[in-house]
């Protein structure tokens, strides 16, 4: 199993999430005042994953949720999850991982 699937990531406190106008938006607190170049839009899948990242649930459990909720095959769900986690890590949006 990919180590990132066994790990439990949490949401960084330096990233604030809000839903506005049907969009799910992440605002990094390290950016400048009204700089919107550095805010991130998440799609439905991304928003679902973000809300699952509680520092307790590991990647495999989150992928199970993706398969169930979005009717996608496990291989695709894993690949999407891992790619998304990598993006979140690159912008400093995650804490952890905590060992299972």
């Amino acid at each position: 199993m990919n180590p990132a699937l066994a790990a439990a990531f949490g949401r960084s406190e330096r990233m604030v999430a809000r839903r506005i106008a049907g969009e799910f938006i992440l605002v990094p607190l390290v950016g400048r005042g009204a700089d919107i170049d550095s805010i991130f839009n998440l799609n439905r899948v991304g928003a679902f994953v973000w809300e699952q990242l509680d520092g307790q649930k590991n990647g495999s459990a989150i992928v199970d949720g993706l398969v169930e909720r979005f009717e996608v095959d496990r291989e695709t769900a894993e690949a999407d999850y891992l790619g998304f986690i990598e993006q979140l890590r690159s912008i400093g949006a995650l804490t952890g991982p905590a060992s299972p």
Binding site: V27, L29, G31, G33, D35, I36, I39
Partner: peptide
């Protein structure tokens, strides 16, 4: 766009 700008700014101001 204004709303997103206000969101980013407001969140950071409260922080």
């Amino acid at each position: 766009r204004d709303r997103r700008t206000a969101l980013a700014r407001g969140v950071r101001q409260l922080d």
